[in-house]
Design a protein around this nucleic acid. Structure first.
Ligand code: ZN
Ligand code: ZN
Ligand code: ZN
Ligand code: ZN
Lengths: 169, 169
DNA sequence: CAATGTTCTGTTAGAATGTCACATATAGGG
DNA sequence: CCCTATATGTGACATTCTAACAGAACATTG
């Protein structure tokens, strides 16, 4: 699925799907989706937005744990978050947005195709594109000057359909 | 000119052209190419590579000034460099490479077309592409999902022709 | 189970990148 | 020359990311 989800879509579904896909992938590859890793991924899955590593840590600290009210686990150290993000990225479950120094849950885990990002400057939502046309055009244009691309970074900032709609009103 | 320059090209020419273009642009727009700004730009023009702001500062500190041997001006503070880079970017004389947190002198100042970057992971050189095909394809693919792009970030890491050639030997 | 090696997490410190606020200097226009 | 806008200096600080080492959890083997 490419592009931005509807504003009122069933996001619980996105989230559950994301976690399920993660479990499946780790199972298949013999890696471990530990509680920490799952929690970091879940924080990212909570919104279609990118978060900095420190924001993730803070959010994890804020989440109440256990039944006792007010009980909250301490936020993990930055190092821990970065390590966990490295793992999730190596699994293709999380992407880094270089232009934001921030991270986002992958929308289509399992696929390994090169991906482009659409970043709405207004609402902050991020969507993935998997345009074969873009990938091909870029690869070909580079080839034309003898360059061999192996890590394309394509991040398009602008306005999403919903924010354009709102502006028009 | 798109793509990587020949390894043995006359780089003094690149550098002189870059400075000349900068003077012309600032003249036209009524802005001032002060000694500081000129010096920062010149440091970037010295190579077809990207440099971090702190590297630029250090390089400026290292450059000898005046005739007395060993005399070197102190490196400017980070803030000064960032401010100067902001100016040069606003003039279109310098670009920021988001995926490297680094800056590079524009290869075609004056042009305001959207640009793509080719970054050689091996030799570190960076070339600009001005592929109309890429720009169009990207814009169109975004439009197809209702997204309006206004700041594309396209940075392609890989291997340049010369490094590929060297590897093949 | 016990011993052992591997992977994962905690912790501390520090490097690298970027910004704020305020002081000073400099250029240009009456 | 004075005044104002612009440019630069300076110090502190915020943010992002990494290195190094210690301890915990897990898996494997004898
Ligand atoms: Zn959703
Ligand atoms: Zn939006
Ligand atoms: Zn050159
Ligand atoms: Zn190269």
């Amino acid at each position: 699925m490419s592009g931005f989800p509807a504003l009122n879509h069933d996001h619980g579904h996105c989230r559950a799907d994301g976690l399920a896909a993660a479990e499946k992938l780790c199972e298949e590859r013999g890696t471990r989706l530990t509680p920490l890793r799952r929690q970091v991924l879940d924080v990212l899955l909570a919104q279609h937005r990118a978060m900095g590593a420190y924001d993730i840590a803070q959010e994890m600290g804020a989440q109440e744990t256990g039944v006792a009210e007010g009980s909250s686990k301490r936020a993990p150290a930055a190092m821990t978050v970065y390590r966990t993000l490295d793992f999730l990225m190596s699994m293709g479950l999380v992407h880094k947005l270089e232009s934001l120094n921030a991270f986002i849950a992958c929308a289509e885990p399992g696929e390994t195709h090169p991906v482009q990002f659409l970043i709405c400057r207004q609402c902050g939502r991020v969507a993935e594109l998997e345009s074969e046309a873009i990938t091909e055009t870029v690869t070909r244009a580079a080839q034309k000057v003898g360059f061999e691309v192996d890590a394309p970074v394509i991040e398009l900032t602008g306005r999403c359909p919903d924010c354009r709609q709102a502006a028009r009103a």
